[in-house]
Computed example of a mutant assay.
Amino acid sequence: MDPLHQAYFSSPIGTIIISATAAALISVLFTEEAPQVNSPDLPVCLQDGLQQLTEYFSGNRKTFDLPLHSGGTAFQETVWQQLSHIPFGQTLSYYSLSSQLGNVAAIRAVGSANGKNQLLLIRPCHRVIGSNGQLVGYAGSLWRKKWLLEHERKVMGTHQLNLFG
């Protein structure tokens, strides 16, 4: 297995730790750790990840273009891929996501897969909400989910949070 590299990113909503092999990102997660000084010889994918996160938080990036390796089951990978199709500044319910995947009965499995997403922000699971419009289930904490959705709304210039995209 390739050696694991890590980098820290100080975001407006806390420290993000990014883990990667030399070729691809494997996780982007919020941490309560204080940011550490990044190695000057980070792999290109980590350097690009840091740059794209800077652009996202400054409002200059709406999608990410990074090599990813998530290592999930076939079903999880399908769900995670679908997350990437939720437009910036919009939301989708777990029910709607299940429907897009062709199986509304799999709503709990979709929720479980969404909760196991290790590439927060990159695969925008924060854009998935409850059918009643409630902010539910975010590994980075619900207050961060709310902040991210409001950030995207501001970047898009919309005047109110549209929870049903």
Rank of each mutant, 00 (worst) to 15 (best):
T63K: 08
S99F: 01
T73F: 14
Q100I: 11
D48E: 12
F30G: 05
Y56N: 10
A74S: 13
I86W: 07
H69T: 09
Y56S: 06
N38H: 06
V104I: 02
I18K: 06
P40I: 00
S96I: 01
G115P: 01
I18L: 13
Y138W: 15
R127L: 03
L92G: 01
Q100L: 11
S84F: 07
S96C: 02
W80F: 08
I122S: 08
A109V: 00
T91Y: 05
P40G: 07
A106W: 03
T73P: 08
G49N: 04
S131P: 02
S39G: 00
S141C: 06
N117F: 07
P40C: 06
R144N: 15
V79N: 06
K146T: 05
A113R: 11
T73G: 08
L101N: 07
R123F: 12
S70K: 10
N103L: 02
T31Q: 08
P35K: 02
N60M: 09
S112F: 03
G111W: 04
F88G: 01
V110D: 01
T31N: 11
T73A: 06
Q134Y: 01
A74K: 14
I26H: 02
A105Y: 10
N38G: 04
A23Y: 12
L92N: 00
Q52W: 08
N114S: 05
P124T: 10
E33Q: 15
K62D: 08
I26A: 02
V110F: 05
W147C: 12
Q100W: 14
I26G: 03
S93K: 00
A113T: 01
Q36N: 00
L101K: 00
I86M: 11
S19G: 01
